[in-house]
Amino acid sequence: MRFELPPPDTFDAVLEAYKKDVDVSLLRENLKLTVEERFLKFQRFMQSMETIRQAMLDSTSSMNQTIAENSSSSREMK
């Protein structure tokens, strides 16, 4: 989906508002690195996101299994 952007002056005003919330310390840290190091840092970040995502999937699957088992045993008790 694509939106029409407002005229440039409004656009710049919006950008100025966004700039106030930019964490400049993260940009400064990146600027200390070489370009290659920036890509490797990004790759590590993406890898850690993948690890978290996988852990969430595993825990959801394990939780569903526990719920299914509990539900099955409570039916048997009845």
Binding site: R2, Y18, K19, L31
Partner: peptide, 22 residues
């Protein structure tokens, strides 16, 4: 990014402009 006209790019453009200024 400005030409692409995507609202999701606004934060990125703000960061890029700060990088350019620095």
């Amino acid at each position: 990014k400005r030409a692409a006209g995507r609202p999701k790019d606004l934060e990125a453009i703000a960061e890029l402009q700060l990088l350019l200024n620095s």
